[in-house]
Design a protein around this nucleic acid. Sequence first.
DNA 1: GCCCCGTGTGTAAACGATTACATATTGAAG
DNA 2: CTTCAATATGTAATCGTTTACACACGGGGC
Lengths: 348, 348
Amino acid sequence: MVTIKDVAREAKMSVATVSRVLNDSGPFSEDTRQLIREVAGRMRYVPHSGARSLITSKTETLGVLLPDLYGEFFSEVIRGMDDTAQKNGFHLLISRAYADRHGIETAIKSMRGRVDGVVAMSPDLDSDSLLNLPSTIPVVLLCSVARGNELDSLTIHNCRGAREMVTHLVSLGHKRIAIIKGSPRNYDAAERLRGYRMALREAGIVPEAILEREGDFTEAGGYSATQALLAMNPRPTAIFAANDSMAIGALSALRESAVQVPKEMAVAGFDDIPLARFMDPPLSSVHVPICELGARAVEMLLHGIIHKNDHPRRRERVSTELVIRRSTGGQPAERPQPRTLNGEKASV
Amino acid sequence: MVTIKDVAREAKMSVATVSRVLNDSGPFSEDTRQLIREVAGRMRYVPHSGARSLITSKTETLGVLLPDLYGEFFSEVIRGMDDTAQKNGFHLLISRAYADRHGIETAIKSMRGRVDGVVAMSPDLDSDSLLNLPSTIPVVLLCSVARGNELDSLTIHNCRGAREMVTHLVSLGHKRIAIIKGSPRNYDAAERLRGYRMALREAGIVPEAILEREGDFTEAGGYSATQALLAMNPRPTAIFAANDSMAIGALSALRESAVQVPKEMAVAGFDDIPLARFMDPPLSSVHVPICELGARAVEMLLHGIIHKNDHPRRRERVSTELVIRRSTGGQPAERPQPRTLNGEKASV
DNA sequence: GCCCCGTGTGTAAACGATTACATATTGAAG
DNA sequence: CTTCAATATGTAATCGTTTACACACGGGGC
């Protein structure tokens, strides 16, 4: 591999001058500039980022810790992150971490010297364990919050979104509304459940434990939870699934049992993944601007990096939006599109 | 940040000894070992990987170049990569690159000194441009091939898979079989088209241009291509979509036009994404072991790294498997399961 | 008592860049 | 002609590690 020394030797200049020209820092003559650029180009010199970051103590890389890479959700989040990262000249170092404390600590440690900051997404973790990290690098918590205000965090407006959807179901006349929950250890799932209950109570309906079925955010989980619900007597008249994958599983189970949607059973999901509107019937859902979630997390992290982690901590939330399609009946719009949320402000 | 020097000073030892103990290399006394480990632990010392990799010239990081992070496909690929990478103590540096030559070259350059090798996935690119890279680091091409044998490459058995599916459709009696193609610049898409034509010719059917509609691998693309097909007279009796997303769009369009599947129109996809069997009717598809694709790519790359890029180049393909569900009719198995691949339980 | 060897430790040179500081060269002002 | 400043370049320290080499010490074989 050709180094800066090689270029210097070839150009009969010192490494300092070469460095100055290539970084366009400090003074140099026009002749020198041309010479060095020509030589560097000819020798196909590429600076060694590792060496550079050692002396500048900037890696221009962001660490991303994910609980598990599953489904469209994560690829969208990553896309949003990569977009903003690249716009700011940063790379993404991605790592799946075991959700336990040891795993996440090990992961962050192994990133020391490789990254300037970390976005940690670990909804399953009680995120306190992140607090006594030995690191002084900025950390942004995604989809979970630290107990105090010690870390920046970005979450979805889960509770409000769920509440809006359930309120909508209530407004359509439903009284027995079931929910397919996610894991209780999952922050998003817990918040969505909270919104569901809140909406019911606001409508004067007492939440019943038997209408709250546990799923695991997969289609299969939604499928079997729905089978259980169908075995009930009386049946619920509406199912609110804590994410779209489970709602899709629910649709599949209902179809198999020849239960008509939305006539006999309304179904709603959460996330509004692109597929939702191609379901049969098109699935009502709570739209989450996933891509922007990732983008915003990176923005927050970059802010922390610029201020050397010495900035007031923020706790932000991105807003959701109700998307009503045919699976909930009511207003049978012909082919409803999710509204564009590109420029949406992530209101706190 | 505490460095090895700080530890050395605190333990009243030289940095060399500290390094030896911490890496368990070279000789040291038991007393020294305990002392240094204690001090390092107490001071929460974490080695600076950047500095280490500068001297060892190993980064233990793999670069991953992706065309665009979209859909479940990519998150699965990344998961497979991360799994194998982590098992071997490697990290993943992920970057979305513009598919043009300049973009991919810039991306690889900017990774110099950060990674030990690169997996480049750029099906849209004529991958020759990768050949005259200034880098001597190992590169594995994913879902595309280099013209010569200069680079390792890993692809899907696209042609064979498509051919099998179309042959199956033929065996069900279909004569007018349409295809919804992907972009002609996409390697996978081109190969799948080739398989489609091959199967038709083998069956004595002459491929017709009018039955080959262009899509873009999205649901929306499949949707509108299908509308065009429905306007034809006579209509085709079967649609083979070059990926599942487009097949799902097709199902959606057929439903809207009240065309019964599979009775009036058989539909098949490619990829067998998890959702496929939750469609209505469950979608026949060509199963691709996506996760393993990523895993295998990383294995190949690691092999190249171990042998310092001085190894015979390989060109591998991962096999697909036909998964027949109800959307193609024929053998209406009650609840057809995909055969178990990578231990997947098809428990619905 | 001498030599040799193994064991434990320290010194210092890398790795490939950036950059503070010193130095050389110029031109202009006095 | 001297002086000063501006400009261009070089020298060398530095970042945080690893590791080749040197060195000190002690014990065993002769």
